[in-house]
């Protein structure tokens, strides 16, 4: 290999090992450290793991986070699909590009500010209850509920899911869809037997991204869900920020990583399975 090629590769590898791989490996190691007199001591003990794994509240948080993220993934996938379907099949190329551009905008507005905005909109005396009040309804309590959390998660994930679904639907070879309809397949059956199988990989990857985002977000459950009980990311923040218990936070983080890895692996295997076997 010549100097030229090396000059491009080596600095990047060193940088990423130092500042990406290094931190992650150190965090795993840290989950075995001890804290004595509010100071972290490098050691190799299972204490943190035993402590965290035997606490009921950790598992409550775990299942709650898993359930909320799953629910969000299902909700986002279902909500996004008709919109993506419209963008992929029923509109012009230029309109599609414009809407996708619109959907990119939220990624560059502060998620915190949007969440804060929802907080005011959803509040008991907020905008929505104000409108409902005119109609003689409500007030409904939406803040500090699971509903609030999921609204927050959807704010974060829905634009991405719509974009990814649209891209995967738009990539379907339209001749196959036309062939199916030409052979007398009804619209609904075409959807089930042609469109969904053909776009499965993209739809599942979209769902996976949605899950990862929701699973790792702490803003929505904290400000809109009231964090009772806390989700895993909130648990990490509480343990690091107030308790100085970095090793225990690391245990939670490793639990999250392992869970995410397992889910991502399964999803990817399922998403690509048929393609490789045929």
């Amino acid at each position: 290999m010549n100097r030229f090629a090396l000059a491009f590769r080596l600095p990047i590898i060193v940088w990423q090992i130092l500042f990406f791989l290094g931190p992650l490996i150190f965090m795993v190691a840290m989950s075995f450290f001890l804290v004595k007199n509010y100071r972290m001591v490098e050691a190799f003990e299972l204490k943190n793991w035993v402590k965290m794994m035997t606490r009921g509240y950790v598992w409550d948080s775990y299942w709650l986070t898993l359930a909320l993220a799953t629910l969000t993934t299902v909700a986002a996938s279902l909500a996004a699909f008709p919109a993506a379907f419209y963008l992929a099949f029923r509109t012009s190329e230029s309109l599609r590009r414009w809407v996708i551009f619109l959907l990119i905008i939220p990624f560059f507005t502060s998620y915190l500010v949007r969440t804060f905005s929802w907080y005011v909109i959803l509040a008991e005396s907020g905008v929505i209850n104000g409108i409902l009040g005119w109609l003689g309804l409500g007030p409904y309590i939406m803040l500090n509920t699971m509903f609030g959390t999921i609204v927050g998660y959807l704010t974060l994930t829905l634009p991405l899911v719509v974009i990814l679904q649209t891209v995967s639907l738009a990539n379907i070879d339209m001749r196959l869809v036309q062939a199916a309809q030409n052979l007398g397949c009804s619209s609904a059956r075409t959807l089930w037997t042609v469109i969904l199988p053909l776009s499965r990989t993209g739809l599942m990857i979209a769902a996976l991204f949605c899950f990862i985002l929701a699973f790792g977000d702490f803003v929505a459950p904290y400000y809109l869900g009231g964090s009772k009980p806390p989700t895993l990311p909130i648990l990490i923040i509480d343990t690091t920020k107030s308790g100085q218990q970095w090793p225990r936070a690391a245990v939670v983080a490793v639990m999250m990583m392992v869970t995410l890895f397992a889910i991502a692996f399964t999803t990817i295997v399922l998403a690509y399975r048929k393609r490789t076997s045929k």
């Binding site: 965090m27 990862i212 990490i236 923040i237």
Partner: peptide
């Protein structure tokens, strides 16, 4: 090594980086 960071939840990356 280059592409994975965005798939890791920010809060985990934050903790790992801090430590």
């Amino acid at each position: 090594l280059i592409l994975l960071p965005p798939t890791i939840p920010l809060i985990i990356l934050a903790l790992a980086m801090l430590a």
